[in-house]
Amino acid sequence: MTHRQAFYLSRRQVMRGLLAASALGVAKFGAGCTSVNSNATGGKGEPLTVGFIYVGPKDDYGYSQAHALGAAAIAKIPGIRVVEEANVAETNAVQETMRSMINLDGATVIFPTSFGYFDPHVLAVAKEFPKVQFFHAGGLYQEGVHPNNVGSYFGYIDEAQYIAGIVAGHATQSNKLGFVAAKPIPQVLRNINSFTLGARSVNPTVKTQVIFTGEWSEPVKEAETTNSMADQGVDVVTCHVDSPKVIMETAEKRGIYCSGYHADQASLAPKGYLTGAEWDWSSIYTQYAQELLADKTLMDDSIPHLLRGGLSSQFCKLSPYGAAVTAKAKADAEAAKQRLLSNEVAIYKGEIKDNTGKVQIQAQQEMKQQAIELEKMNWLVEGVDGKVTG
């Protein structure tokens, strides 16, 4: 156990003691009686304490690391103090962590970064602490339904996946791509579909095999799935799991190409890494920090409850091209990137059928990235071999 882990275990034990005392009437914490300041900066020149919670380790080469890099960026801003906890499960454990950060650390802003934290956990704790602001990655905030101290932010990283798909479409010799996915939630399905649409825009015969592991972090299953795909002739693999590390390393060992996700994994596969879809949370968290330091809040609507953006808004970016990427692939990928940056093209423009033959987007119909229908996606595009199963 690391010193960091030991500290947070101790803090949880303290929190349990405080909650137990609360039950006996010795101490009371919550919305009605709390040590939280209403002032954004903590009052009297104190720094604004911001809590970040990660579902995995901060060095996972993936989702948690990408958020941790963003947290590290704003920790350098004068007036900001960052507290963090990693390896927090999508269970009541995250509620305990949030209460601990608020009551023991004095956090007035919390970023619970994992998808499964939102409902019921963030929503429950937000009701307890109406003066604390909760910003969740990926949750779909509903006005009049969710507490007004809850916000949602996420990026159209499928734009970067679309471009990565173009590179993959050029690289494949077998016309078989592989996608290792955790769960069939809308954000994952959107990445699978955009990656496939990008690949088929330059190579219409390409097909993508998708396998869902069922969990965000299943290293053994991820390795087995990558090996199985390689055995079946897949020669480019990508993913949407918390940490792509095992998948990238396994692809490299098998001598097939790979495309990363969340962060730059080029060092894990120096021969086969093509590119990847990366988050750029530093820019988004810096924007939030500046607004918070200016005493803006979700509660007075001076900070939007729903924040979205893509490549042009610096929510995401593309990993540098690997040595195996051809000049033609780079040219096509860069051309697509420029069209997306200038909003000249929509990824989801009809006619588009799903992989059962049903028309999901009609001919001449165009769905911009902001379309709410895309945030509720529950289908796989034509060309994907797989089923949407829970």
Rank of each mutant, 00 (worst) to 15 (best):
Q314A: 15
N378G: 09
Q338G: 11
Q209F: 08
S319P: 01
D105N: 13
G255Y: 09
G42L: 08
E291H: 11
P244E: 04
Y273K: 04
Q370G: 06
G390D: 09
H146L: 09
L340R: 11
T41A: 05
T91Y: 06
Q133V: 11
R12F: 15
S114Y: 12
S243M: 09
E344G: 15
A89D: 13
K271Q: 14
Q232D: 05
K28M: 01
G383F: 09
A86W: 12
Q287G: 13
A23M: 00
F129R: 10
T41M: 06
D385N: 13
W281T: 00
V36A: 10
C239Q: 14
P112H: 05
R308I: 14
M15R: 05
G357S: 03
H240F: 05
I211F: 07
V122H: 13
S259N: 13
R190Y: 02
E291M: 15
T205M: 04
W281N: 00
S259W: 05
P130W: 12
I185T: 10
A182E: 03
F135D: 01
S282L: 06
V83Q: 01
D332M: 07
N103K: 06
V26N: 02
T97W: 07
W281M: 00
L274R: 11
V145S: 09
M15H: 09
R308S: 04
A73E: 13
I247G: 00
G169R: 03
E222V: 02
A40E: 12
A160V: 07
K28L: 00
H262P: 02
N39D: 12
V50N: 00
Q287P: 04
E46S: 12
F212H: 06
D385S: 11
F179S: 03
K349I: 08
C33H: 10
N148C: 08
K328F: 08
G198D: 02
G386M: 12
K131S: 08
V388H: 02
G178R: 07
A346K: 03
A329W: 02
F212K: 12
E159Q: 15
T297V: 14
Y63F: 15
N191I: 06
S302F: 15
P120R: 14
L104D: 13
L9S: 14
R16M: 03
Y8K: 07
P244G: 03
G79D: 08
A182T: 09
R339F: 07
N378P: 05
G310Y: 00
H305C: 07
D280F: 05
S282V: 04
G43P: 13
Q369D: 14
V167A: 05
A124S: 14
Q362M: 12
V26I: 15
D158N: 13
I80H: 00
N343A: 10
Y63D: 05
D354A: 09
I163W: 07
T213H: 04
G62F: 02
Q362R: 14
I347T: 04
D242I: 10
Q365Y: 05
H262I: 02
K221M: 06
N193H: 09
